[in-house]
Design a protein around this nucleic acid. Sequence first.
RNA 1: GACCCCAUCGUCUAGCGGUUAGGACACGACUCUUUCAAGGUCGAGACACGGGUUCGAUUCCCGUUGGGGUCGCCA
Length: 470
Amino acid sequence: MTVVTRFAPSPTGFLHIGGARTALFNWLYARHTGGKFLLRIEDTDRKRSTKEAIAAILEGLDWLGLDRDGEPVYQSARSERHAEVARELLDAGHAYRCYCSPEELAEMRKRAQAEGRSTRYDGRWRGRDPSEAPDGVPPVIRFKAPQAGETVVDDAVQGEVRVANAQLDDMVLLRADGSPTYMLAVVVDDHDMGISHVIRGDDHLNNAFRQANVYQAMGWPVPVFAHVPLIHGPDGAKLSKRHGALGVEAYRDMGYLPEALRNYLLRLGWSHGDDETISTAQAIEWFDLPGIGRSPARIDFDKLANLNGHYIRETPDRDLVGGVGGVGARVATLLKRPLTSEEEVRLTAAVGELKQRAKTTQELAESSLFYFSNGAPEPDAKALKLLSGEAPALLARLGPVLGGETDWSADTLEHAIRGFAEAEGVKLGKVAQPLRAALTGRAASPGIFQVLKVLGREESLARIEKLSRT
RNA sequence: GACCCCAUCGUCUAGCGGUUAGGACACGACUCUUUCAAGGUCGAGACACGGGUUCGAUUCCCGUUGGGGUCGCCA
């Protein structure tokens, strides 16, 4: 059997982190099995669906690197087919017309609740003859759900899940205006698209029972269901905007790399022994359904950051500046001006060291700023401390020594500075720290010889001279 | 409230009847070192509770507690 999976978001918002993981799992499973990964936009609810949301979802998937097979299917374009299936169900006696008005249903629920009964639809039109239909009330079509026995779903993640059919009510398939409901549309579309595996959020587990019954009524094979537990916020509560329920583009803007996010999301709910750092290629090779965990997970930004740092270090300097990392663009934004080509060269020379200590590409961009300031940046408190006491005098003596160097390479500079420290009778740190403060305005930076080299002879000497005069 | 799902260090997890309960992030110490990171070494840290089943339960079953989800002419 060929595997066909799908990601089926409703375009009412951006692609959030939970949806991204669902998409990732579906994509991975399709790629792992050599099957297909399809995209379906569930825009049945025209009122709440927006073009912007569709664009955001498409962009999000694209940025995450989850390529789909074929063009996206728009559910709204398929309403004719949905209605057709509803009619078939009606003809076969698996569905019936219900003439309850919304007001009547609200009243029914209110009473049920007051009496402590279940608020499910009571099936009052199930056996009634259409001739009893009231005037002027357009009917909905409801599914005739089995009333006795139980419905069993053999879930690839949750195992065998069962519910008494008495718990299931006759859900609406076709609204009064003839439009299909989600419950009908998913089943019809998943069937027509040949979906073999439905991998989706846990919040759909209860729907699976209802959907399984529709499949059966139509005589269609039921796909494999795999309900993945939801992602919670760091506090265990539902994901909110404050912590993580952001669109993937927000993660991109914050400076996370797509591969890092993929790796993080993969490990959030799926495992392969003790493996933690898993490349996408490796993930495709390993991904399977039994590896998906059954319990909900909390998002952990520290771990994401750690993984991101790892992938930043792995990314070639050039790609970091211009490609996925977009560090060049970030620096330009911070500087509020485009980089000169000379600066771009300098940035590329600098990232190799800078990336060793960055958790995000945004952080990386910020840490490079001292290379582009006009003169040394204003020293911060710690740097100021390093520049007090003997330091200015020391730098004043160091200046000419470095000025005498003709070969401005890291090795030569290191040799010269170590020699200087020795001649002064101080440890290297006594020279390196004030020098660092003078060049970068900070107490922490990449290796100081590297900084000198990237900054260049002229700029370095100018910064030293300026500070040594104070 | 009814129904469904879940339960191992703070977090993500390994474990699939017999283990000194393993790894990762975070945390602490040390190390490396021109600073900060990264790296290395070490440390602290968990089987929610109560019953069964079994020679033996973290592991299987039941219950309790706790968490989550679903109860729309939304998806």
